[in-house]
């Protein structure tokens, strides 16, 4: 059942992506991007990543859509026209895609528990979270306790981006 849900949402996601490639009206594009993020959030929840799913629904489907819509309002543009009509981009994309698919043939199948990814450090975090930090939600304990410096770096990135946005959008007075 889990795999079936996963399969259906992946198909929806692919169709939305094809629509994003085809459509040129910017408003429709932004609403489709919101739908895409919402489907991605559902998919993440199906794959047991509940914290990530909630963040993606709030930040990806919510904040990103608002940011894109406000940028659309400020730039007063309606349609995007395609520029390159030659075959070069399609050939490049098919080449990259083919190489990546060739690379996946050596990877383990979906949903197995004895793969290298699931064997070492992830299992250790699950074992040690309660004795060492007493936090039952392992994602929270890793984010805030074991990898606290990582989160500090993330906050620095947001701070820097905020300063950048403010400096770009501020109207400077001409001397």
């Amino acid at each position: 059942m889990e795999f079936f849900l996963n399969f259906i949402i992946l198909i929806f996601l692919s169709f939305i992506t094809i629509a994003i490639i085809k459509i040129n009206n910017l408003f429709s594009l932004i609403i489709l991007t919101g739908t895409y993020s919402f489907l991605m959030a559902s998919l993440l929840i199906v794959m047991d990543a509940v914290d990530v799913g909630m963040t993606e629904a709030a930040v990806g489907a919510g904040v990103s859509t608002v940011l894109l819509l406000s940028a659309l309002y400020l730039t007063e543009s309606k349609d995007s026209n395609r520029s390159n009509q030659n075959a070069m981009p399609i050939v490049l994309c098919l080449l990259v895609g083919g190489l990546l698919v060739y690379g996946t043939l050596g990877l383990p199948q979906y949903g197995l528990s004895d793969t290298p990814v699931n064997s070492y450090v992830g299992a250790l975090y699950l074992e040690r979270s309660i004795p060492e930090t007493t936090i039952p939600n392992v994602v929270t304990s890793v984010l805030a306790s074991y990898r606290g410096y990582d989160t500090l770096g993330e906050v620095t990135v947001i701070f820097t981006a905020g300063i950048g946005v403010l400096m770009l959008l501020k109207k400077f007075k001409q001397d």
Partner: peptide, 24 residues
């Protein structure tokens, strides 16, 4: 496995930061 979830939580927030900077 909880570890990929933690890494992707960071990636989502950084993604929005880069998107807002690009839009600005």
């Amino acid at each position: 496995n909880p570890l990929p979830h933690v890494l992707i939580l960071t990636a989502i927030v950084v993604g929005v930061a880069t998107l807002s900077l690009g839009l600005a």
